[in-house]
């Protein structure tokens, strides 16, 4: 803060209302931007976590077909497995479908059933290992419908379907976050522009004097941009500081939610740093906007 003090003292411009309201706008904008950014980063963290949990293989389980059905139960079950495989193979975004062999199944069941022969009439669910292509979006609801139609005893992991839905919601939220950030950015720039126009008008006599004693336009632009930068930074810093406890509270509440779905939302040190950089970015943005505005205006009218 000291470095800013040095530049604001002895400024040839007196204080004016435009310099008073600017910090408030900056505070609000950075407050909003901090919350939005924290939200977006948290959502990103969650989706990343979900992504890795969905990644790789997905398992479809085919329950033994009902005893009431005609014919051999094992044959019926295996026929349903084949139908399920057919459905899975033609679905979009699925890379590989493989039915687990008897040996593999036996291994999986060994802890519970001991060494058994799966060809016997013990009703054991059959498993299909499905590899997903992460680049494509698997239409889980559609897949679920088709499975229900052709292989009613096959079940898709509901949890993952639900996660996929959440992920598309997260993507939407992320997009909204960017829209909000962009709006905050544009609002900041436009606010600074208008504040600068007003300020230029208020300080016209001082500016004229500075010109008459030999100041170049760039000197005046620099004075304005430093002043704007300082005022903006003050407001922006407060905005961020107000947002931080709120982010922490919301974060803690989310972490306490049942199911632990939101447990992976907490921000990393780097992400906190990104939020801490917001007031600096906002101050630099407004200083730069003021510089350009003054340059533009002086060239046009003075």
């Amino acid at each position: 803060m000291l470095i800013f003090k040095k530049y604001t003292q002895n400024l040839p411009f007196a204080y004016d209302t435009s310099s008073l309201f600017l910090p408030w706008i900056m505070m609000l904008m950075v407050f909003l931007a901090s919350l939005t950014m924290a939200g977006s980063l948290a959502v990103n963290n969650m989706t990343e976590h979900w992504n890795s949990s969905i990644a790789g293989s997905l398992t479809v389980q085919v329950m033994p077909s009902s005893v009431k059905a005609a014919g051999n139960m094992l044959d019926n079950t295996m026929a349903e497995v084949d139908r399920a495989v057919a459905v899975l193979k033609q679905a979009k975004g699925i890379k590989d479908v493989r039915v687990l062999s008897d040996a593999e199944l036996g291994k999986l069941l060994e802890p519970w059933l001991g060494n058994i022969d799966l060809q016997d009439d013990i009703p054991v669910p059959r498993l299909i290992d499905v590899k997903i292509n992460m680049a494509e979006n698997v239409d889980f609801p559609k897949l679920k419908d088709e499975l229900a139609k052709y292989a009613p005893n096959a079940s898709l992991d509901i949890h993952r379907v639900w996660l996929a839905k959440l992920m598309s919601l997260a993507a939407t939220l992320n997009f909204l976050a960017w829209v909000v950030m962009m709006l905050a950015l544009v609002t900041t720039a436009v606010t600074v522009m208008y504040a600068t126009f007003t300020s230029l008008e208020v300080h016209r006599p001082a500016i004229e004097l500075l010109h008459l004693i030999g100041a170049r336009d760039a000197y005046i632009s620099l004075l304005f941009s430093r002043r704007t930068l300082t005022f903006s930074f003050g407001g922006a810093l407060v905005g961020m500081l107000l947002a931080i406890p709120l982010i922490i509270i919301i974060g803690t509440m989310a972490a306490g939610l049942e199911g632990g779905v939101l447990a992976n939302a907490s921000l990393s040190a780097l992400q906190w740093l990104l939020i801490a950089a917001l007031p600096f970015a906002a101050a630099i943005l407004s200083g730069f906007t003021a510089f350009l505005t003054v340059g533009f205006k002086l060239k046009r009218t003075m």
């Binding site: 002895n10 040839p12 007196a14 004097l209 500075l210 004693i213 030999g214 100041a215 000197y219």
Partner: peptide
């Protein structure tokens, strides 16, 4: 400039340079 001291007012042409 009313908000500057006599000293700062006189210094202005040098500052500008």
């Amino acid at each position: 400039l009313d908000h500057l001291t006599a000293q700062e007012n006189v210094a202005l042409p040098l500052r500008v340079m």
